[in-house]
Computed example of a mutant assay.
Amino acid sequence: MAIYQITLKNCAFYARHGVFEQEAALGQRFLVDVVLDVEAGDALVSDEVEQTVHYGLAYALVEKIVTGSRRNLIEALANDVALGLTAWSPLIRRVEVAIRKPSVPIAGILDYVEVRVEHPV
Score class of each variant (00 low, 15 high):
residue 69 S to P: 01
residue 39 E to D: 12
residue 42 D to V: 12
residue 118 E to M: 14
residue 102 P to R: 15
residue 55 Y to V: 04
residue 72 N to D: 08
residue 119 H to T: 10
residue 119 H to K: 13
residue 67 T to V: 10
residue 68 G to S: 13
residue 102 P to S: 14
residue 111 D to K: 06
residue 50 E to K: 11
residue 63 E to Q: 14
residue 28 Q to D: 07
residue 83 L to K: 07
residue 76 A to I: 03
residue 65 I to T: 01
residue 103 S to A: 11
residue 21 E to F: 09
residue 62 V to Y: 05
residue 1 M to Y: 07
residue 113 V to L: 13
residue 100 R to C: 06
residue 82 A to V: 13
residue 91 L to M: 11
residue 4 Y to I: 14
residue 27 G to Q: 01
residue 86 T to K: 05
residue 61 L to H: 04
residue 22 Q to V: 11
residue 11 C to T: 12
residue 39 E to M: 13
residue 69 S to C: 08
residue 68 G to N: 09
residue 68 G to D: 10
residue 46 S to P: 09
residue 24 A to Q: 10
residue 7 T to P: 01
residue 18 G to K: 00
residue 81 V to G: 01
residue 94 R to I: 09
residue 43 A to Q: 14
residue 104 V to A: 08
residue 56 G to K: 07
residue 55 Y to W: 11
residue 27 G to K: 00
residue 48 E to F: 13
residue 105 P to Q: 11
residue 100 R to D: 08
residue 32 V to C: 02
residue 91 L to F: 15
residue 34 V to H: 01
residue 33 D to S: 15
residue 91 L to W: 14
residue 33 D to C: 15
residue 101 K to H: 06
residue 46 S to T: 08
residue 92 I to R: 05
residue 38 V to Q: 02
residue 104 V to G: 08
residue 112 Y to Q: 12
residue 117 V to F: 03
residue 6 I to T: 10
residue 54 H to P: 03
